[in-house]
Amino acid sequence: MSKNEKEPIFSAKNLKYLTSPFSANNPVIVQILGICSALAVTVQLKPAIVMALSVAVVCGFANLVMSLLRNGVPSRIRIIVQLVVIATLVILVDQVLKAFVYDVSKQLSVYVGLIITNCIVMGRVEAFALGSKPWPSFLDGIGNGLGYGLILVIVAFFRELFGAGTLLGFRIIPESIYASEGGFYSNCGIMLFPPMALIIVGCIIWAHRSWHKDLQEK
């Protein structure tokens, strides 16, 4: 507790750990990590949101645990230790969800493997938690998870809207303008396929770098 008195838990510095991954240090569009799962779960908005929250939670707690262990981990086997910690966390959470909130666990079951192997989780543990105190590590993990989720949600928004005409399963583009109902519109089928996620991520990176000039590579 004495540490907290020296530095408030939500000091400007700590908040920065939480918020910098949203834009300036975003894991997907700046660090280019976690692209593979971004392709897999962004066909619809709902799985993207579930995945975003799960990764934020796992990333936060993996960072916390590894930061607590950081002084005892032998550096030669640290990657294996990280993997064990992350996998254990994910499986524990999945087991508890299966017992108490079965519906949520069914939603998540497909993504458990994707969460464990998500390079953002390991990337943050390796780059941040092993050299930082627990609380900043936890914030950094949550921040990076949410920063990843933000991109997931943006990509999924465009893919579901133009690929299926719906958002979260609700119809946004009215049935009446579809070609099959006598209108002129039809869904953009390519939106449903993985390459389109890459192209959208590319467009986001383009827009982001035009805005943040300092990120542009010379």
Binding site: V43, Q44, R159, E160, G163
Partner: peptide
């Protein structure tokens, strides 16, 4: 299903 593609 256990793992069909969401949306497809």
């Amino acid at each position: 299903h256990s793992g069909e593609t969401p949306g497809l």
